[in-house]
């Protein structure tokens, strides 16, 4: 048995980076509760095209929760009302019939709006380019027993590496801070022998870039961790703080 719902959508529309932007209200009907939020957006866009109106621009790619491209601040939360999912994985059964759904882009000085709900997240790429790598080739995959790594470290590195660079942490943070993202990228390398060598310099360079790009600082509210679709832990931020301070004090 299939259930359907009708919704009122309050969507942010903005013609370009320089435009002031405004909310527009649309109605969508007979939306299957089995569909995903992005499928619902597709239905809205079909409807707008038929009415000869400009469709709503929004980001998406894999639609299976692994690429980090989809965004959207839905009803006051990044990726909407479900926990630990991206917007492409968000089901319409999370909404009630007749509900008004407010859809906004990520809000941060470092993520300027390109159009409607799309924001420019190249700032993340710039942070990675500043130091989020190992600068010498460490060869192919080593034999599992060649460099023994404690299970606890391997698990923590793996958890940090699950960050998909979506930017929900920045969107959730009241300071638009990128600390959870940076800490995940720093931790996934710093916990392993190949990455440990450059750990301090990496932390310093990536934080300098983060500050330069206009992200805010961390005040430990913890909102990022709650809203991260991959559950990246704020203990990574403690590790980043530790490494950054060690780097600065050993200058």
């Amino acid at each position: 048995m299939e259930n359907t719902i009708n919704l009122t959508l309050k969507v942010w529309r903005q013609n370009g980076p320089k435009d002031k932007g405004r909310f527009e209200t649309y109605k969508v009907e007979n939306i299957s509760t089995d569909s995903s939020f992005l499928e619902m957006m597709d239905i809205l866009n079909e409807q707008l095209i038929k009415e000869n109106k400009e469709p709503v621009a929004f980001d998406h790619d894999c639609r299976e929760g692994i690429c980090g491209m989809c965004s959207l601040y839905i009803n006051g939360r990044p990726h909407g009302p479900d926990d630990d999912v991206t917007t492409c994985q968000l089901h319409m059964r999370k909404f009630k019939d007749g509900e008004t759904v407010t859809i906004e882009p990520w809000r941060a000085a470092a993520f300027p709006v390109i159009k409607d709900l799309m924001v420019d997240r190249t700032a993340f790429d710039k942070i990675i380019a500043a130091g989020g790598y190992v600068s010498v080739s460490t060869g192919g995959v080593p034999d599992a027993n060649a460099i023994p790594i404690p299970k606890v470290d391997a698990d923590e590195a793996m958890d940090a590496a699950s960050c998909i660079g979506c930017g929900a942490c920045v969107a959730a943070c009241k300071n638009s801070s990128a600390m959870l993202f940076v800490s995940a990228k720093v931790s996934q390398l710093a916990l392993l022998p190949q990455g440990r060598v450059e750990a301090k310099a990496r932390a310093k360079a990536m934080i300098a870039k983060m500050d330069e790009l206009g992200f805010g600082g961390c005040t430990n509210t913890g909102a990022c961790e709650v809203e991260c679709p991959k559950g990246v832990s704020i203990t990574n931020i403690a590790r980043l703080n530790r490494q950054y301070l060690a780097a600065r004090f050993s200058e």
């Binding site: 942010w12 909310f23 809000r107 206009g214 805010g216 600082g217």
Partner: peptide, 10 residues
């Protein structure tokens, strides 16, 4: 930190 978010959420 305030300056890092010039436009807030509705």
């Amino acid at each position: 930190n305030y300056k890092a978010r010039p436009v807030g959420y509705d």
